[in-house]
Simulated scan of single mutants.
Amino acid sequence: MAAACARTLCKVGWNILESPAGTVSYLVRNASAHGSRRAYGTGGPGVRSGLLSSLRAGEGRVRGSGGRVLGCAFLLGGGLGLYHTVKSRLQQHLAEGEVKVSGDGLKLTLYQYKTCPFCSKVRAFLDYHGLPYEIVEVNPVMRQEIKWSAYRKVPILMVDEDVQLNDSSVIISSLKTYLITKEKSISDIIRCYPEMKAVNDRGKEVTEYNNKYWVMLGEAENTTLYPEKGMQKEEMKWRQWADDWLVHLISPNVYRTTGEALASFDYIVREGKFGTFEGFFAKYVGAAAMFLISKRLKSRHNLQEDVRQDLYKAVNDWVAAIGKKRKFMGGDHPNLADLAVFGVLRVMEGLQAFDDMMENTKVKHWYRRMERAALNHEGRN
């Protein structure tokens, strides 16, 4: 549209320069005729009528050499408009090129629940690495958005609309492998994480994935990513800790009391994809149900009566594992364990459990560094 306006200004300018002085009168009459229907200024009718009066008063003076001045003004305005349009288009083109490069040519679509800690882990990885992605928020009741998938959990990441990645740790390991190697396609890489059916300790069949904490690299690439002995093993250990232990501390803490359960579900309903009735039902019935379920989870995972103490201990254990000499577990930059722990903890933001954690543990400085790293896409290069 800007280009069209600029071309119109140029055309008007040439017409004024090449036409008799009567053209200016025509423009003024047109302005009078249409002034009551369209106004682009912010001064209101009084300003418009004053402007038109000035134009009429000056019409005689505009004839002759004045017309040429006005024509030059239109030409100058049109030329500047074209310049800024071309500049804007060029900047847009360059920005699109940067997005394509930063996204490594992948079209990514994440099917998620906003408040799911496993989904938050994937978003933390994508944000940190500056990978553009689209989000499809899944209705947690009907789940129509993933009815096409045999795998009925979230997160699901679709790559280029034809390769499906399941399980947050598999998604992260696969993408990290792809970003480093660039030699294999996502379809080839995903074969390194074969699906395996198993029965858990409650007798329920579950789907697990072999090798899901491994980044599949050659020897040289592996040495570059993990320059110090033990770094890879440490990263894998704490990624698994985030999945097997830290995640299980979230629900008992955010649903610890009836008031916290209601506040948590108010947040879930606001952020999630619920209909009006579903939202009301989820907020009140869901809060009551999860308050009761959190008691069972506390028993199942052998948590203390005050579950905050388990959360505090876990977070402080994490900070102690990083130590005082490192900014992150990955050193000067976050590794996959940093991103996993950050993603899990982030889902509590805005809730009482998060505020208590930040006040009563040593995690604050590390967490704020992680926030900045993800927000600024510091892993893009």
Score class of each variant (00 low, 15 high):
T42Q: 10
Q144G: 15
V136E: 03
S149L: 05
S88T: 13
V122N: 04
F125G: 10
T85D: 15
R37N: 07
K153C: 08
L76I: 06
G67P: 00
Y111D: 07
S53D: 01
L110Y: 00
V62E: 09
S65C: 01
G130L: 07
I156V: 14
E96W: 05
A39W: 00
S49M: 06
E59I: 03
G50S: 10
A73Y: 07
P155I: 02
P117V: 02
S36F: 00
T109G: 01
G46T: 06
E96P: 00
V62P: 04
S49V: 07
V154R: 06
D127N: 14
V101L: 14
G103W: 04
E59H: 08
V86N: 11
A95N: 10
V141E: 13
F74E: 01
E59Y: 03
G103V: 08
R56N: 07
D127L: 11
I135G: 00
Y113T: 07
Y128Q: 07
Q92H: 08
M142A: 15
T42F: 12
G77W: 13
T42C: 12
G58D: 14
G44N: 10
G44D: 05
S53K: 03
S53R: 08
G77I: 01
A73G: 12
D104R: 14
L126W: 01
R29M: 09
T109A: 01
V141P: 00
G71I: 05
M142H: 13
V122W: 03
R68L: 10
S36N: 05
N139D: 14
I146Q: 04
F118K: 08
S88I: 00
R68E: 12
R68V: 11
K121S: 04
V154M: 07
T85K: 05
G81V: 01
L75W: 04
L52A: 05
G97F: 09
L52V: 06
L106N: 02
G78Q: 06
S102L: 13
L82C: 13
K87H: 05
H34N: 13
F125C: 09
C72P: 01
